Amino acid sequence: MRNKVLVVAIILLVCSSLTAQDWTNKFKEAQRVAQQEDKKVLLLFAGSDWCAPCMKLERFVLDTETFVTYASKNYVLVKADFPRKKKNQPPAYISEQNAALAEKYNPNGYFPLLVMLTSEGVKLGEIGYKKIATDAYINILKSWETR
């Protein structure tokens, strides 16, 4: 019995480490964590229920084990989602925060858009969806880290 419990615990641990990186929707909290952990903030502007390129970026890049592993060590991830369906709408305070973030960091309304920021909110770089490998995305992000 004890061996079965141990095996199940190990399987759960392995499976949980392979899941997608956690994205927060609280920008100020993310800045605080980034400052404490000496990380950059990676801000994603997405339309989760209508934007096909957003879905591709998440599926083929952001949810990959390679990206998740690298991002968890280097970034605090924030998702500013702009869903269209009523059932997917975030609370009003998150919608207001996302609108303010878009005004400041995505004034042209590009979707998807990944923006790298310092913990103080200084923009270091941005990229939309490109049909390139995860490693290529990571190399682009790395090039901004030293700015």
Rank of each mutant, 00 (worst) to 15 (best):
L141P: 01
G47W: 02
A9C: 14
V14G: 03
L114A: 07
L57I: 02
K79H: 06
L114R: 05
W50S: 08
M1E: 09
K40V: 00
V5K: 15
L13C: 14
F27A: 07
K104E: 12
L141H: 10
V41D: 08
G47S: 07
M1P: 07
Q35S: 14
F111T: 02
P90I: 02
F27H: 14
T146A: 12
F60M: 09
Y70H: 14
I132G: 04
F82L: 11
L44M: 10
D22N: 09
K26M: 09
V122Q: 13
A133H: 01
R59I: 00
I94P: 01
L43Q: 03
V122I: 10
G109W: 04
V14P: 04
L77D: 04
K85D: 11
L13M: 15
P83V: 05
C51P: 01
K28Q: 12
T118L: 06
I94R: 06
E103V: 04
Q89K: 12
E37R: 15
M1A: 13
Q36F: 01
E65Y: 10
T118Y: 02
A102H: 02
T118W: 02
A9P: 11
P90L: 08
W23D: 10
P112L: 00
S119K: 12
I10A: 15
G121Y: 03
N98P: 00
L77I: 05
V5I: 15
A102F: 01
R32M: 10
N106C: 11
A100Q: 13
L117S: 05
T19F: 06
L44P: 01
V41G: 11
P53I: 05
K26D: 14
N88Q: 07
S72F: 00
